[in-house]
């Protein structure tokens, strides 16, 4: 069991990361990545709603007729998103206002439905919860990294605190939409290159049982 849980964690964080491998769910969160704080709150929201939706849908999979499965999934997801929206409005009204429509858009975040279809439909509730949560973590890791770059270069701050020297000229492009696309592309490029290299190394180790010492 623990081995399986560990494998799910590794899969969702790295080998099958929702952003740079599955390319799912970029829509609703990329827009807020010019501020680290908003990104953190949004991604926590996405992780929690993915985890709880996966858990619920996995628990009730036997009772959902196939024909209405999609609409049931959407309704369950919107139920959790509404709860998150209400919590945000109550405890973090300022952030809730800044995020605007994007909280509601978690409903249509493909990652949640993707996990419900790909994992929760065939697994036990607890494991599905874990799968949803770790998918959210993989998602969070990438987006927070992007947000850190965008906030530091675009505003010269990190989580609202000034980190760049006073003479620093903010890069306007980093606040605007294109930079997010470029940064996602960079993350994809980096991750795929590293993975390809690891795969090549593994293949080489398999084909040559006695590897020659590599030259540095």
């Amino acid at each position: 069991m623990s081995g399986k849980a560990g494998k799910i964690l590794w899969d969702n964080l790295w080998t099958n990361n929702p952003i740079f491998i599955q390319i799912l769910g970029i829509c609703s969160t990329l827009a807020v990545t010019n501020s680290v704080r908003n990104t953190l709150i949004m991604t926590v929201g996405v992780s929690l709603s993915t985890a709880f939706s996966s858990w619920t849908l996995s628990a009730m999979q036997a009772t959902i007729p196939r024909k209405v499965r999609m609409i049931v999934q959407v309704l369950v997801i919107s139920f959790y998103v509404i709860i998150i929206d209400i919590i945000l409005r109550a405890y973090l009204p300022e952030v809730s206002k800044q995020l605007g429509p994007y909280v509601g858009l978690i409903i249509t975040n493909c990652i949640i439905m993707g996990r419900a279809e790909a994992f929760a439909a065939a697994n036990k509730p607890v494991l599905s919860f874990w799968d949803g949560l770790t998918s959210g973590l993989g998602y969070m890791a990438v987006l927070v990294a992007i947000a850190v770059v965008r906030e530091i270069l675009g505003f010269g701050t990190l989580l609202g605190f000034r980190v760049m020297p006073a003479g620093f000229e903010p890069w306007t492009i980093m606040i605007m939409a294109p930079s997010a696309f470029f940064l996602v592309a960079f993350v994809m490029w980096w991750a795929k290159t590293v993975q390809a290299r690891a795969a090549a190394k593994a293949a080489a180790a398999k084909s040559a049982p006695r590897p020659v010492p590599a030259k540095a």
Binding site: F181, F182, V184, A185, M188, W189, W190, K192, T193, A196
Partner: peptide, 12 residues
């Protein structure tokens, strides 16, 4: 570049 193929270059 191999790592940028597909989704990567599309994002760019």
């Amino acid at each position: 570049p191999a790592g940028l193929k597909g989704a990567g270059i599309t994002m760019v």
